[in-house]
Design a binder for these strands. Structure first.
Lengths: 349, 349
DNA sequence: TATTGATGCTAAATCGATATAATTGTAAAG
DNA sequence: CTTTACAATTATATCGATTTAGCATCAATA
């Protein structure tokens, strides 16, 4: 029992393929197909459960009804959650999702853009690594809907959704200062991505405004987490004067907490902690860790809304939307000024 | 500058499309195309960077070079990690991935199978909800490669990869008993999926073997996590005699730890804890939580290997592979018999 | 000389839809 | 009575590949 084609439908109804196609594409009125025939076709199609082959349709129309989703890594909880929310909305509108992880690799990303292009995906959602400006620009010039998120590429006129990285980092740093901390480190992954630069800038400007010296530690990404934990551990051991640390992202925070545990440091007595990105690990740590929570639902919602808007037939031709969402500082315990301040260097000899 | 088609290539080389196609598909020898012409075509194709349109090819051949990945939810860290590992291998072999989340909804899953079918995906990787036996059977009967994982559907003759749920739960329970715990609860999500039934059976058989009474609490899934935490909290408050708990999955463990924190219980003094699925929250909890770790890399590896094997031209026609992998019990602190056993009911009055 | 058999390549059908141009029939207009 | 106009539908080309069947050419065989 092979799948029915439009030709089968046409034959069985004794009409032409064109007629069936017009009816199915809502062009019946425009093409002056009689109401009676329209309903005859519709009834039959429903009866036999026919639905057009999207591949054939795609070949003819150039539209795939597929959205390409490119994130740094789908295994990252932040991206995985966004992917789920985007998927829900997209599927409801009849769009399917082809995903891939860029691993933040510029060349890989370029190749992947090609792959998606070949498949004529209808729209792109990308959290881009640096260095793909040209390719993304080409997509936009070709009229492709593209929405960036999490980071953007400054020079491009493109829709994007991000958070207010700089003020968020500024405020968190400021709060630590207000709590009485002075030696505040910023620990993050080495990165030239816009969001990381923003967070770094926010931290630095808060520190300098307070007349404090900044202290930045960049972790090199390593697939073996132990290695990264070790570098944080080393850094913390060598900088015993630190009394607080701001982690630039969940991965940094995760490595950081593990290093802190290994060093047996008490939070916040030995070291106060605040991290970007909220997550269960922060809620469940003892003490619970104060975190800068990204509005994940809102991000996904804006991203997919922007894309679907542009995908609609009478799609918006408005200039690029630059959406910046606010974060929420989830105050828990790890940022609190300890009642009795202990100096680690004394404690540990 | 439109994309080149095979016709363009043929014209520019003054040969027929057939010839170009044969060369590109490695059928040159079979079709006795002269070595000289073969290299002329190959050289030109490389020069102009032509690559065949996968959609047109898909229409003709019925092959899409796309794998359909259906998981309970892509936002779940377990599935997200698997998705990443599968993606890496699949892309290397020229396969793209269309994903979707079933939300464990049977009807939704049926619809999604249809969606994937329409797009003629070449193979399916599914962690199925119950109730889709018929549809999956139809896929297999139609000659589609299908690999199930995380759970299976007993009656089906289909490749699957899972872990040894029953022995894992048995051993973990046994270990708690050996530590001296007697009132051990099993807290899990209500579920009739094979993996959950296996874990439950393992727990029950360990308890009965030791002559202990089992005590199972099923959490109803609720999108609002607070609600689920509250039910665990209620259960723990009403069962103060419990001295240990085994959580059936990460989600249960996560809710459970939050409930434990709210109730201000000390682990393991007030309540020993072991959970299925390893995760950072368990490593970072104080004390670190003993967990039954699934071999995520191995699972993904076996799943994608099975599928790629069947996808290969001379694909294996062997009977279904039923792969059962072992878990690793990560011993940390939360399962240890406390030095001085305190009875909660006494403590809290 | 006609037949056979490789050799090397190509024409045309096909996959299943959409889109364009054409066709038929009927009524109104000139 | 022809022309025009419009309504209702259809034939055909097309998207870009793969695949089947077939066509020359030339050497070897009968």
């Amino acid at each position: 029992m092979k799948k029915l084609s439009i030709a089968d439908i046409a034959n069985q109804l004794n009409v032409s393929k064109s007629t069936v196609s017009f009816v199915l594409n809502g062009r019946a009125e425009e093409k002056r197909i009689s109401k009676e025939l329209v309903s005859r076709v519709e009834k039959f199609v429903k009866e036999v459960g026919y639905s057009p082959n999207p591949i054939a349709r795609g070949l003819r129309t150039g539209k795939s009804h597929i959205i390409g989703l490119m994130v740094e890594s789908i295994s990252d909880p932040f991206f995985a959650q966004i992917a789920k929310l985007i998927e829900d909305r997209a599927y409801k509108k009849g769009y399917r999702i082809l995903y891939c992880s860029t691993d933040n690799n510029t060349q890989k990303t370029r190749d992947l853009i090609d792959v998606f292009r070949e498949r004529s995906v209808d729209g792109y959602i990308i959290s881009p690594p640096v260095g793909v400006e040209k390719e993304i620009d080409a997509l936009i010039k070709a009229g492709m809907p593209v929405v960036l998120f999490d980071r953007n590429l400054k020079e491009l006129e493109v829709d994007y959704v991000e958070i207010d990285n700089e003020p968020s980092a500024f405020n968190a740093t400021k709060m630590l200062v207000d709590q009485g901390f002075k030696d505040i480190a910023f620990i993050t992954f080495s990165s030239s991505q816009s969001q990381m630069l923003g967070r770094l800038a926010g931290y630095r400007s808060a520190m300098s405004q307070e007349g404090l010296t900044d202290n930045v530690h960049e972790i090199d990404y390593n697939p073996d987490e132990e290695v990264m934990i070790a570098t944080v551990q080393k850094y913390l051991s060598e900088n015993k004067q630190l009394d607080a640390v701001l982690f630039g992202a969940i991965q940094a925070g995760s490595c950081g907490l593990k290093a802190i545990n290994i060093l047996n440091l008490k939070v916040p007595q030995d070291l106060a902690v605040v991290s970007f990105d909220d997550h269960d690990i922060f809620k469940l740590f003892a003490p619970p860790v104060t975190a800068i929570a990204q509005p994940i639902e809102a991000i996904a919602d804006r991203v997919i809304s922007l894309l679907l808007d542009r995908l609609e037939p009478g799609g918006k031709d408005a200039g690029p939307a630059k959406i910046i969402l606010e974060t929420e500082l989830k105050l828990r315990k790890s940022h609190l000024s300890p009642v009795k301040k202990t100096i680690r260097s004394k404690k540990s000899g």
